[in-house]
Amino acid sequence: MNKLLTANIWRLAIVLFLQLMLLKQISFDLSILSYMQFLIYPVIILMLPVKLDRTLTLLIAFAIGITMDMFYDSPGVHAAATVTTAYLRPFLLAWMEPYEGYNVRESPTIEKLGFRWYAVYLAALLLTHLLLYFSIEAFSFVFIGDIVLNAIISFIPTYMIIMLGMFLFKPVN
């Protein structure tokens, strides 16, 4: 339990540090690459224990979202998207439940549940989060083309970065 908590707190700190200090600064001005934004903090929500109290996950997600908002100068946008992602996570987990159920209190990739499972899990939640974030940022269906374009173009590099991080750090819990 203690190991779980410290592992998660370390993950929170490192990911937030990376996101806010490094990845926030990266932006392109070229034509289609200007839609690319790196948002890797959903991985914190993803890697929370599977059976963690749902209310607690919502509150944690809200806190992370508000922190991101404070740095990105967009009050409420990240918070709304993150809270919705955290709310939808249990439904996705229940849908993707492996044959013998989740027998541990976490969801990493290699050791516990397999690469294929994790690839689908990450893709689903990350895409959901990005679509939600860009939709709330645009706040109007007039911009639906921009929203989808932003989500898809940001999704690919973000996905690769998170996968890379998984392979590099090999988190156990």
Partner: peptide, 22 residues
């Protein structure tokens, strides 16, 4: 329904932020 209520409350707070400050 605790979870859903908390979700709704947090979303309302977020949207309040969004609409007031953005």
């Amino acid at each position: 329904f605790g979870v859903h209520i908390v979700f709704l409350i947090l979303q309302i707070i977020s949207f309040y932020f969004i609409v007031s400050y953005n």
